[in-house]
């Protein structure tokens, strides 16, 4: 039970550039050329205006903690080995938000609206997950 295999993302092919980006330590989001919306998670077309004229742009990787929780018990099997770990929603300065883990600090130090910046954690040769740590 302590060595359950890591959970890998189930990739929608339209998001492949995102995962190629994280492997190179770049946090890519989509930008709509028609309505200028920033988009995350990746879509086939813009969820605001349905244009398919989307660019991939690199996020500065900075944002704030919208909310967070510290897991101490009863996690899914694959995460028992990581307890305690922090699940959070981060709002990026580009206006999009994502589920992530907060790493690199004591869980007790985390607060809502705290500034954070992206770090990249390699899961395996194919996947690197964007996570966040307190901003310097």
């Amino acid at each position: 039970m302590n060595n359950s295999p890591r959970i890998r993302p189930i990739v929608n092919p339209c998001a492949q550039p995102f995962w190629d980006g994280t492997r190179q330590e770049k946090l890519l989001i989509q930008h709509c050329k028609e309505c200028q919306a920033n988009i995350f998670y990746p879509r086939l077309f813009c969820p605001e205006c349905h244009s398919d004229q989307l660019d991939w742009v690199e996020s500065a990787g900075k944002g704030t903690v919208y909310s967070y929780t510290v897991v101490y018990n009863n996690s899914p099997s694959a995460f028992l080995q990581d307890i305690p770990y922090v699940v959070a929603i981060v709002k990026l300065n580009e206006g999009v938000q994502m589920c992530t883990n907060i790493v690199g600090c004591e869980p007790e130090k985390i607060q809502c609206d705290m500034p954070v910046e992206v770090v990249f954690e390699k899961l395996d040769d194919e996947f690197t997950l964007p996570k966040f740590k307190p901003a310097q």
Binding site: R6, I7, R8, P9, I10, V11, N12, A15, Y41, Y66, S67, Y68, T69, V71, N74, S75, P76, A78, F79, D82, Y85, V87, A88, I89, M98, C99, T100, N101, C112, L123, F127, L129
Partner: peptide, 21 residues
């Protein structure tokens, strides 16, 4: 399965995120 499961999200964390905020 792409954007949350790999981070250890589950129903306890989901409820806890709303509680915290």
């Amino acid at each position: 399965g792409e954007w949350e499961v790999p981070y250890g999200q589950h129903y306890s964390t989901i409820a806890a995120l709303s509680m915290t905020r």
